[in-house]
Amino acid sequence: MSTAALAPEWLTAREIALCPCGCIGKRRKANFVEKTIIGAANVLKQAMFSADVASQPGLLQRIQPAVKVVTMLALLMATAVVRHLSILVALYAATLAIAVASGLPLWFFVKRVWLFIPIFTGVIVVPATLNLITPGRVVIPLGTWFGHSVGVTAQGLTSAGLIVARVATSISLVVLLTLTTPWNKLLAALRTMRVPKMFVLVLGMAYRYIFYLLETVTDMYTARKSRTANHRNNTSSGRAFVAATAGATFGKAHALSIEVHDAMVARGYTGNARSIDHFQIVKRDVVWVLACSVTIAATLGVNYALGS
C-alpha cells in the first residue's frame, strides 16, 4: 500500500522505546483519576457478585420481592422507634442469622454493613459522647477546656451506642434486601406495588446504562493511558481529562438516549411499559410475613414495657 507516501516523516521513523538498561524510571502512584476508574471497574464486579448472591438458593431469595420490600420497610420503621440498646442488639443478631440462612458469607455481610457506619454516624456520635453535648456522669475524663472539665459521659455513651446499633441494624436490613433480590426483580416488585411505571422504567434504564457509561469511561481512560508516556503534571492533566471525559460522556449519553427512545418506539412503545412477570404469593411468603409481624410486635411490646 502506498500510504507511506502521504504519511509525515515522523510516523515512519522509529521512536526510542525502552532504554537498554531496563526499568529505571520513577514508579508512579495511582492518581485520583486512576482510582476513580478502578472504582468504576469495581462497581461492575460488585454488581456481578450481587447478581450471583441474589440467584443462590437461600431463605430470603425465595421470598417474593414485593413481600420482601414491604416487610423490610416495616422492620426499618420498627427499628427507628426502638429506644433500648438490648432490643437493637437482638434485632441486629437476627439480621446476621437471616444473612447466614440466605447463604451470604457472614464476614462479607458484616464488613459491608460496618464500612458504611463511620461515614453515617462518626460525625454525630463522637461529639455526642462528650459532657459538653450530653451532660451526665463523666466516666472517661479527657482534661479541661477553657476551665471546664471535659470527658465522656455514661449517658453520652448510651446514646452513641443506640445510634450506632440502630444504624447498623437498618443498614443490615437494606443490605439484606438488595443482596438477595436481583435488581430487575426489585424493579418488577416496585411495579406491582403501584409505583408509577414511568418512574420504574427510568430507574431500570438508569441502572442499565450506568454500566454502559462506566464501560465507556473505562475505555476512554484505558485509551488515554495507553497514549500517555510522560507523567509530569499528572493531577492537572487528570483533571482536564475528567472534565473532557465528562463532556464527551454526557454527549454520548444524550445521543444514546435518543437512540434508545427510537428503538423503543420502533417496537411499539407508546408510553406504557408492560411487564411479562406476574407475581403470586405462596405459603412461604405468608409464613415470612407472619414471622416479621411477630418480630415487629415483640420489638414494639418490649420497647414499651421497658419504658423510656
Binding site: 430487575n184 437512540e259 434508545v260 417496537r267 411499539g268 412503545y269 406504557n272
Partner: peptide
C-alpha cells in the same frame, strides 16, 4: 448500535418488550 436497542434489565424482558407493547 445494539447497546441502544437492548435496554431492558434482562434478555427475556427485552424480547418480550415488543410483543407486550
Amino acid at each position: 448500535n445494539s447497546d441502544a436497542q437492548v435496554f431492558s434489565p434482562t434478555v427475556r424482558e427485552e424480547i418480550a418488550f415488543g410483543p407486550l407493547n
